[in-house]
């Protein structure tokens, strides 16, 4: 069954789109990642113009993260206070990021440097997470209950402006919270991705928030960043395809519900191991894209005058 997308200006098979939406929604509900890094390339692969894919993907992620966040809220695994603090940092970071982005653009090849840094960063984070979570899984198998989580950061606890985050069961300075939000906000605008898969490890390892709460809180924060992206894209590029977004959403919200369920059945370290694999996979995909000889060295973009 085909359907015509008015903004993307092409006909697509509705079931292919439903499948993409469901898969991305599932990952979103399970790991607290937005899935923009998956849905955008999938749509581009399916001939949707890149600018439409980016904007419409963001719109879909709004829906699946709302769906997932509400489920987490009901289960008591969403720390709204922590989410708002991260968001405050995130919005400030995104604003600075937009400025950095236009500055890098003027310089030329620097987006290459960014993707290189990104590959290294994802590989590093994903690798460390995988090692840590596999060790944790082994320890629980042996019946050893870790008395204290490894790798504490005492300097974080000496910072001023401490605040109590009840849901997360942590008492922490707001400075690292806003700082992490800010850093990810910058990355969000520079790289054009939601940053969920950086946010989640950062909260787990730097802020020591319990893994389950991390997922809900990350989803909560993603709602706002992707909603913001959607509106900005619609206003500047006219590139949100509401028909495409709606089909993706319908499948995505259902996928997210199942993702939350599966995610909550897993133990923290299992969830972290799976997320580590996902982060590594994204890193490897980006790395391969840089290294492997492309099938076609030429690419075509329509419209506008680009340098």
């Amino acid at each position: 069954m085909t359907i015509y997308l008015p903004i993307a200006e092409l006909s697509v098979n509705i079931f292919v789109i439903l499948g993409m939406g469901a898969a991305v929604g599932f990952l979103s509900g399970m790991f607290g990642v937005g899935g923009g890094f998956l849905i955008t390339p999938l749509l581009i692969f399916y001939n949707v113009p890149p600018v439409v894919a980016v904007a419409t993907g963001a719109n879909q992620v709004v829906a699946s993260s709302v769906s997932g966040a509400i489920s987490h809220f009901r289960r008591g695994t969403l720390d709204i206070k922590l989410g708002l603090m991260l968001l405050a940092g995130g919005l400030a970071g995104a604003t600075v990021g937009i400025w950095i982005f236009s500055f890098l653009r003027r310089l030329g090849q620097l987006d290459l440097v960014i993707s290189l840094l990104y590959v290294i960063f994802l590989g590093f984070v994903g690798g460390l997470m995988l090692i840590e979570s596999i060790n944790a899984i082994r320890k629980t198998r042996k019946g050893v209950v870790p008395v204290k989580a490894p790798g504490q950061h005492p300097w974080i606890h000496r910072l001023p402006f401490k605040m109590r985050f009840k849901k997360s069961k942590i008492y922490l300075s707001v400075i690292p919270v806003i700082g992490i939000g800010f850093g990810i906000g910058v990355l969000t605008s520079v790289m054009g991705v939601g940053g969920g898969f950086i946010m989640v490890p950062a909260m787990i390892y730097l802020l020591r928030v319990p893994t389950n709460v991390v997922v809900g809180t990350s989803l909560f924060q993603i709602i706002f960043t992707t909603a913001y992206t959607t509106v900005v894209q619609a206003a500047t590029n006219y590139s949100v395809d509401i028909v495409l977004a709606f089909i993706l959403m319908v499948a995505g919200v259902v996928g997210a519900q199942y993702g939350v369920r599966v995610g909550q059945k897993l133990r923290g370290e299992q969830l972290r191991a799976l997320l580590a694999l996902l982060v590594l996979a994204v890193g490897i995909r980006l790395a391969l894209q840089l290294v492997i000889t492309p099938a076609d060295v030429y690419s075509l973009a329509i419209g506008g005058v680009h340098g």
């Binding site: 719109n59 879909q60 709004v62 829906a63 699946s64 993260s65 709302v66 769906s67 997932g68 966040a69 509400i70 489920s71 009901r74 909603a227 959607t230 509106v231 900005v232 894209q233 619609a234 206003a235 949100v240 509401i242 977004a245 709606f246 959403m249 319908v250 919200v253 259902v254 997210a256 519900q257």
Partner: peptide, 16 residues
């Protein structure tokens, strides 16, 4: 753009 976001919020809420 805002309508798109609203639709997304509604869909997400509806599913939950």
């Amino acid at each position: 753009g805002m309508a798109s976001v609203f639709l997304a919020l509604l869909t997400g809420w509806g599913a939950s």
